[in-house]
């Protein structure tokens, strides 16, 4: 039986892991290779690395850091940040990524998703959506949450997966870094319309939050602050998921 995935996220800037609250107040959170090594040892099912300034600086995610992570990781690595075309995705796969996550460029040019899926297959293409509550809906934001878009998160998730994205990394900007729990309504709304796996992101505090996200339809749960700051470990979280009767990898 397919296990539920626990995925630590490395938001990176200038070669360091960083973390903010609601995408702001960014602070240093450690060395990426050291953290990734620790998470792998603790039983992380995958690692996600998001280069949070790549889009703003008009470049793809840092290849050197991807290569450094790959050298130590024998588990999957998803890389996002600034990917604008197939060539940049191919380069990251050659450097050590196993999946690529697209966000801002796909919002500007949705056909990018189709092109990536046609070449690399849907299973390689993760659509990252940063959503914020707005007028009773969830508005998609781009460029690291800086810019509003006219798109609703649910409709965009549906369109993106119909275009070929094989996974949705769904981040609640309202909950990011707050430890207030995942936005379960958002999760339910998106997992109810797409047929691909959905990764819940933004707001985890304790293992019960991850259990709740899975109950709301998430196939995988992503967290950053609670692992970086040592509130809990990947192993502890997985133990608790198992205690709730969820299938996890030992």
């Amino acid at each position: 039986m397919l296990s539920r995935r626990v995925i630590p996220c490395l938001d990176t800037r200038d070669g360091r892991v960083v973390k903010g609250v609601r995408f702001e107040g960014i602070r240093d959170a450690g060395d990426p290779v050291r953290l990734a090594t620790r998470y792998q040892r603790e039983g992380a099912d995958e690692i996600v690395m998001l280069d949070i300034t790549a889009t703003i600086e008009g470049r793809p995610a840092t290849r050197r850091l991807v290569a450094a992570l790959r050298a130590v990781l024998a588990i999957p690595l998803t890389v996002g940040g600034g990917i604008r075309n197939e060539a940049e995705a191919a380069a990251l796969l050659e450097d050590g990524a196993d999946k690529v996550a697209v966000n801002s460029a796909a919002l500007a040019t949705p056909g990018l998703i189709d092109r990536l899926a046609t070449r690399f297959g849907s299973q390689c293409v993760t659509l990252a959506i940063d959503a914020a509550r707005h007028d009773g809906d969830w508005q998609v934001r781009r460029r690291g949450g800086r810019d509003a878009t006219p798109r609703g998160a649910v409709a965009w998730a549906l369109e993106g997966t119909q275009r070929g994205a094989g996974e949705v990394l769904l981040t609640s900007i309202d909950r990011d870094g707050t430890r207030e729990g995942y936005d379960l309504e958002l999760l339910r709304a998106v997992t109810g319309v797409v047929t691909v796996p959905v990764i819940a992101s933004g707001g985890a505090r304790v293992a019960e939050d991850l259990v709740a996200a899975i109950a709301a339809g998430a196939d995988a749960v992503l967290a950053a602050s609670i692992f970086h700051d040592g509130d809990t470990s990947v192993g502890d979280v997985k133990d608790q998921l198992a205690r709730h009767g969820l299938e996890i990898r030992r």
Partner: peptide
Amino acid sequence: PEGVRVPQLGWNT
């Protein structure tokens, strides 16, 4: 098939 999340992404036996 339909009825499960596709693609299959993750750890299975």
